[in-house]
Design a protein around this nucleic acid. Structure first.
Lengths: 188, 188
DNA sequence: AATATTATTGACCGTTTAGTCAATAACTAT
DNA sequence: ATAGTTATTGACTAAACGGTCAATAATATT
């Protein structure tokens, strides 16, 4: 008993995510979201809430799709070296393809929103923790003698996030490849 | 022959920089800049130009003060290990002190503005190149046998930028310390 | 078919935004 | 002193912003 929704929730979330991913929170207007989703403002508010709620939904969608795909890859088949290589090569390919300047919504949110929105900060911290856990277990079996998985996985996360900043800055892709190769140096 | 300016240009630039550093470009309003500088809107426009010009001035000021201080430190006295340690410890101290969430205006600009403003992109790329050159020459004499200064300096830049993202995300400071220690591993 | 419930629509609202400008003030050079 | 030049001031504007809402439409239940 009630009128059913006309839109596909997943498609709308995907569209919201892409806009915030590309433009950031402040530079995105409600009109951008209307254009991208095909829903009118009233429908967006009715179904999801205000702009900040839409951002949280976009962030959660990024987590459930893009970040989870990375984590699944890390937990899946293959050597540690292959996995780390894939992680950085994905950045290089995304940059070449012009996908949002090679940027990462998680990094963007960390810089733009985490300092001013505790819900974003909490979400971002949780995702980082999950990423590190997957990274840690992925490299555990490929450590050199007497090495430590926790600190190496931390370095790789830092280097990975840094590489996404460099990509957005328009730095040469060789820098990302060098970063990747340096991370591989400590893996057998 | 003409009325002299009433403000100290350096103090105004410092104030502009701090606001953009803290809030980013889009979230900063002209009123914020008026409040921070003590100049009225008309004076800001007359003396420096529009909001985007003010941002470029802030970026240049960050380069000439904060970035240059880091580069001078890298070019100065001390071992490579000491210099890299200082670099990361400055991030930890800034974060503890609550200075703009431990963030870096260069990283923020790379993510928020470089993809949509070619003047910012060009400025940011130049600064990154200068930083890498200083880093490269700082570590050159502390390399282990058969190692390479270019790729290691690239890794350190990536790790450093990544650490500043982690700081803004509110990640544990231990992660920054671990990143630092991992970067030191390849230095004698 | 009538009713209840929810979705969609687009006009509307108050606020805030970046940016302008004519009037005035403060200085220097002659 | 006067004239010329630039800085300061604050009121002003048009556009864009996030958000609201009453009217309408589409369904499920009875």
């Amino acid at each position: 008993m009630s009128r059913p929704r006309e839109f596909d929730e997943e498609r709308v979330k995907e569209a919201l995510m892409k806009i915030f991913w590309q433009k950031g929170y402040e530079a995105t207007t409600m009109q951008d979201l209307v254009d991208a989703t095909g829903l009118l403002k009233g429908s967006l508010y009715g179904a999801f809430g205000d702009k900040q709620a839409l951002y949280m939904i976009a962030l959660a969608h990024y987590d459930h799709t893009r970040m989870q795909a990375g984590i699944d890859m890390l937990n899946g088949e293959g050597s540690a070296r292959e996995k780390i290589t894939r992680l950085f090569d994905a950045v290089i390919e995304a940059t070449k393809a012009g996908e949002f300047g090679g940027g990462c919504l998680l990094c963007n949110a960390s810089i733009e929103m985490a300092p001013v929105d505790s819900a974003v900060e909490s979400s971002v911290k949780t995702t980082i923790r999950r990423l590190q856990a997957a990274l840690r277990s992925a490299i555990e079996s490929a450590l050199k003698p007497a090495d430590d998985a926790t600190t190496l996985s931390t370095l790789i996360i830092s280097a990975y996030f840094g590489a996404r900043v460099l990509a957005k800055a328009g730095a040469p892709l060789q820098m990302i490849a060098d970063t990747r190769d340096r991370c591989l140096k400590d893996l057998v």
